[in-house]
């Protein structure tokens, strides 16, 4: 067992690109679920909007006679955000007047529809079909400041540039959420979460507030998707990248950290990535050092095993600390009344 390597790998993952973009997306989901009580099971859909919205203009392409060259970065970001905003509006208009469960059904289906649409063969010129889009990060990497040319703390130069911007954005997003939630707007949002009718009876437009929250959280999801593809260097319409599994991993991060807590999604994402890497490397090391015989677990099966262990950990968390790492136990006690 090489504990040094296990530790390094765990630490690198805990603050690596996955934790970073998870944190951004999870902040959005926390606005949805934690503060407003919206059951959004299609967060990957918002990430898809951001990822493709960014990658398509940056990569250049051609479809139905239109042709465009490689566009500036800001245009891609803007298009990604607009796409996510429209996606949020489309989801919200029919469902936010209804009970919470309808939003859950519609979001989970819409995110899948979106992922299947972008991989359509007929859209190959636009989205690259099932091949996705590659090589759109050149201009982004060219803008990298020279002090990162040798990388940073063991991260490669390309990674460290994305990571630096990403974690700065995480701080910005936390500050932004803090300002919003500690304002009268945040008060209305929480009131809507607790009881929509009570909020309405006091003259608050619950529908409008829920829509604002859905779009705002969606924008954070889209930005998370942008950082994801910038770090990965390509957009792939696979289920792991933009399907339901991604949505639920982000849910895990939110719940792990504690819902409706400012730092909950950030800490949750760090822990999620860290734990996943820790179980993965330590199992691998244990298999290699023959602490675990091949008859029980071999190197290939480790990839599956780590999710089983993570699920077990999550179950234990729900049993012994149901409010998440940062949650307030008093709040949960109120639910039981």
């Amino acid at each position: 067992m090489d504990w040094g390597q296990i530790f390094t790998f765990t630490a690198e993952s805990a603050f690596g690109t996955q934790a970073m973009y998870f944190a951004i997306a999870a902040i959005g989901l926390n606005i949805h679920f934690g503060y407003t009580g919206l059951l959004n099971f299609g967060h990957a859909g918002f990430m898809t909007c951001g990822a493709y919205g960014l990658a398509i203009p940056l990569a250049g392409g051609e479809i139905w006679g239109f042709e465009w060259g490689q566009q500036a970065m800001w245009k891609g970001v803007l298009i990604g955000l607009i796409a996510a905003g429209i996606f949020g509006l489309l989801l919200g208009i029919p469902t936010l007047r209804l009970r919470a469960d309808y939003l859950a059904i519609v979001t989970i289906a819409s995110a899948e529809i979106l992922r299947i649409v972008v991989r359509a063969t007929s859209l190959r010129g636009l989205t690259g079909g099932s091949n996705g889009i590659n090589g759109f990060t050149t201009s982004f990497q060219n803008a990298r400041p020279s002090f990162l040319d040798d990388g940073f703390l063991g991260y490669s130069s390309r990674q460290s540039w994305v990571l630096m911007l990403g974690w700065i954005f995480v701080l910005f997003a936390v500050g932004f959420t803090y300002l919003l939630i500690h304002s009268p707007w945040g008060r209305v949002v929480k009131a809507v979460r607790e009881d929509e009718d009570a909020a309405r009876a006091l003259g608050k437009n619950a529908y409008s507030v829920k829509m604002q929250s859905l779009v705002l959280g969606g924008l954070f999801g889209a930005i998370g998707g942008m950082f994801f593809v910038l770090a990965q260097g390509s957009v792939q319409p696979t289920p792991q990248d933009f399907g339901t599994p991604k949505t639920f991993f982000i849910w895990v991060a939110v719940i792990l950290g504690g819902t409706a807590r400012l730092w909950g999604p950030v800490i949750g994402s760090i822990m999620f990535s860290g734990l996943l890497a820790f179980t993965d490397t330590s199992l691998r090391e244990a298999v290699r050092a023959d602490y675990i015989p091949d008859s029980i677990l071999d190197g290939v099966q480790v990839g599956q095993m780590r999710f089983i262990l993570l699920g077990l950990g999550l179950m234990l968390l729900m049993v012994f600390r149901p409010q998440g790492i940062f949650g307030d136990k008093r709040e949960l006690a109120l639910d039981a009344r």
């Binding site: 009131a191 607790e194 009881d195 009570a198 309405r200 009876a201 006091l202 003259g203 009344r337």
Partner: peptide, 23 residues
């Protein structure tokens, strides 16, 4: 809409009290 009614100065309470518990 209910919120507009309330803004007109007509406000109601509920039979099953709606205290916003976690606030």
């Amino acid at each position: 809409a209910p919120h507009k009614v309330a803004r007109q100065g007509m406000v109601r309470t509920f039979q099953l009290t709606k205290a916003l518990s976690k606030i």
